[in-house]
Simulated assay, not measured.
Amino acid sequence: MRLQKVLAQAGVASRRVCEQMIDKRRVEVNGKIVTTQGMRIDPSTAVVKVDGMRVMITEELVHLALNKPRGWQSTMLDELGRPCVGDLVAERIASGQRLFHVGRLDAETEGLLLLTNDGELAHRLMHPSYKVQKTYLADVEGVVRRSVDRALEAGVTLDDGPVRVDAFSVVDAFDKSTLVKIVLHEGRKHIVRRLLEHVGHPVTRLVRTQIGSVHLGDQRPGTIRALNRQEVGALYKEVGL
């Protein structure tokens, strides 16, 4: 297996960043600094180090779906002691698994968050060039009119640049609020909340229900499940792996 792929799967970094590490002579295999790209190694026997620290190589990839509760931080450790994703996978981390979350949800946003130890998959799922769609349900203030749908799908300009949703629809309408569904592949900070506030409908509750082909379904808040083979295969296919 190529060295940069082994490093990425071990959770060191994305494959591209691992290649940069090799170029900078930061990686060694069996006591020798690697100076060229494309080196093939046997993950079951090779001793690999980055910056002098051994990388624990495992061929067992982990792919998990978490329903992040509202009020929890999308971090593995919170310096202020607030509830965070790391608390929910503490036993896995203590046993030696190196997990990281694919993207973030702000504290007040709940719903689907993917966890994996495959660095390259995580990198591609987060990178906008791969256009992996994320689906959200949002309770917003006010009655959403058809003009909002057209504006969001045509594109609006925020303070950090233009953005256009992939799909937008009204799910249910009430006297003073509306439940909407929004699909986009952007990953900018607070993008859904900023978009909806920009068109005059501040968000009161936001739930991510889908990433690519993986659905949240009826998974309860705070619970974690392993993705099945079909879901994992579909994610790899979506990002060209």
Rank of each mutant, 00 (worst) to 15 (best):
V156D: 11
D106W: 08
V199W: 07
K131L: 14
G161D: 13
V203W: 02
V132Q: 04
V143G: 06
M126K: 01
E110A: 08
G142K: 12
V207E: 08
V132R: 03
L112E: 09
G155T: 04
E108F: 03
D149S: 01
Q210N: 13
V170C: 01
V183E: 05
L105M: 05
G200Q: 08
E110T: 06
H198V: 08
E141F: 03
E153Y: 10
L216D: 08
V192N: 04
R188H: 06
G187P: 08
K134A: 00
R104E: 01
D159R: 03
V192P: 00
R194A: 03
F168T: 02
T116L: 01
R205F: 08
I191H: 06
V156Y: 05
E141Y: 04
L196Q: 11
L206F: 12
A122M: 04
V170N: 09
V140R: 07
L158C: 09
A122C: 12
G111Y: 04
A151W: 08
T135G: 03
R104M: 12
L152K: 00
F100D: 01
H215E: 11
L179C: 11
L125I: 12
T109C: 10
G111M: 08
E120F: 10
R150L: 14
T135D: 06
Y136R: 04
G155M: 03
R104A: 05
D139T: 14
L152V: 13
H201C: 10
L216S: 00
E197N: 13
K131M: 15
L137M: 14
R205Y: 09
A167V: 14
D159I: 08
K131R: 15
L115H: 06
E120S: 06
L152E: 13
H190W: 11
G200K: 05
R150C: 04
K176Q: 15
R208E: 02
K189S: 15
L184Y: 10
G142F: 13
H127D: 13
G161Y: 13
G142I: 09
K176H: 15
R124W: 08
R205Q: 11
E153K: 15
E197T: 14
F168R: 13
S213W: 05
V192M: 10
V203K: 03
K131T: 14
D160T: 14
H190A: 10
A151Y: 09
P162N: 01
E108S: 05
H185Q: 00
Q210F: 05
V132N: 09
Q133N: 13
H123E: 12
V148H: 01
A107F: 10
G161V: 06
V207F: 11
L114F: 06
E197K: 14
D118C: 07
V140E: 05
V132E: 07
T116Q: 07
D139G: 10
V156Q: 01
H215A: 07
L112W: 04
P128H: 14
F174Y: 15
D175N: 15
R150N: 12
I182C: 00
E153A: 07
H201K: 06
G200Y: 02
T209L: 04
G161N: 06
S213Y: 12
Y130V: 06
S169E: 13
R145F: 11
S169L: 02
I182Q: 00
T109K: 01
G111H: 00
D159W: 10
